[in-house]
Computed example of a mutant assay.
Amino acid sequence: MSINRVNISGNLTRDPELRVTGGGTQILSFGVAVNDRRRNQQSGEWEDYPNFVDCVVFGARAEPLSRFLSKGSKVAVEGKLRYSSWETKDGQRRSKLEVVVDEVEFLSPRNQASGGQGYQQYGGQAQPQAAAPGYGGPVAAAPQPQAQPAYGAVQTPPSADVYDEDIPF
């Protein structure tokens, strides 16, 4: 038995690139920088060494997600690894390992100045949530999507002014 699952969190290294294949499949590509900490042998200090991970999202999820991501955004990504190899026109062999993304969680604010709505998790379509006072989740201002798909409802945390006495059971 083998398991092919990966979870990473980091910052986007570039703005996402949205393409469409000849058959109409949407493909969103972006890179995530993640740090590895190592001790410097000479100084004894801990240092961060960046790793750059290519990520790809396929299908109808690609376009809506592209509207919420930009260079520098902090995200957590879950997916599976996929290895690709090819030969260039000049005969060189190339290969890469990338993450085929299943879920994205937005970890950085989209717009610090205006609050009220946050985007907690993206596992199919972007799901806006009202940010409750005292809720420690990310805060972002974004327009409401035009049509909501028939995915599971996103639960919002209770507002800070709800008490046990207010619950009717």
Rank of each mutant, 00 (worst) to 15 (best):
R37E: 15
R39Q: 15
E63W: 04
A141W: 15
L65Q: 04
M1K: 12
V101F: 02
P109V: 05
E47A: 06
Q120Y: 14
G79N: 06
D102K: 07
G123I: 07
V57T: 00
K80C: 13
G72Y: 02
L65K: 02
E47F: 03
F169C: 00
K74C: 14
P128S: 00
G22T: 11
S84E: 15
D161V: 06
V104I: 13
Y151F: 15
T156D: 13
L28P: 01
F169V: 04
A130V: 14
P138T: 13
Q127A: 11
G134E: 02
N40R: 05
Q146C: 09
P168D: 00
E78I: 10
P149F: 10
G116Y: 01
S29G: 05
A76R: 02
S66A: 08
W46H: 04
R67A: 06
V34N: 02
V100M: 05
T25M: 08
F58E: 01
G123C: 03
G123S: 08
D161F: 03
M1H: 13
G31E: 09
G118R: 00
A130T: 15
N7R: 12
A132Y: 04
P158N: 07
F58N: 07
P168N: 06
R67Y: 08
P16V: 02
S9G: 14
E47Y: 05
Y83N: 08
R94A: 08
V56A: 09
D36Q: 11
F106P: 01
Y122L: 15
Y135E: 10
E165T: 03
P168S: 04
P128H: 05
V162G: 00
A131D: 11
A33R: 12
T21H: 00
P50K: 01
T13Y: 05
E47Q: 12
L28M: 01
G10W: 00
K80Y: 13
S84H: 11
S73K: 08
R110V: 13
L18E: 08
V20M: 12
K80R: 12
F169Q: 04
F68H: 10
F30A: 02
V34I: 08
M1N: 13
E47K: 09
T88N: 05
E63V: 02
P64W: 02
E63T: 03
G31Y: 01
L97G: 08
E87T: 12
V6W: 03
R93P: 08
G24Y: 04
L28G: 02
V99R: 04
G31W: 02
A150F: 04
D48W: 01
A126S: 10
Q112W: 11
Y119D: 14
Y119R: 09
V154L: 10
S43N: 01
F58T: 07
S2E: 14
R14G: 11
G23P: 09
Y49H: 13
L97Y: 08
A113Q: 12
Q26W: 06
Y83W: 04
L69P: 00
Y49N: 10
A131V: 12
F52C: 12
E63D: 11
V154A: 15
N11E: 14
A153F: 14
G118V: 06
A126L: 12
S70L: 08
P133C: 04
G115D: 05
V32I: 06
A60P: 08
Q117L: 14
M1T: 15
R19Y: 07
P158C: 03
K96T: 15
S114A: 14
V6E: 09
L12I: 07
E98S: 09
A140F: 08
Q144K: 12
Q125P: 12
S85M: 12
K89L: 09
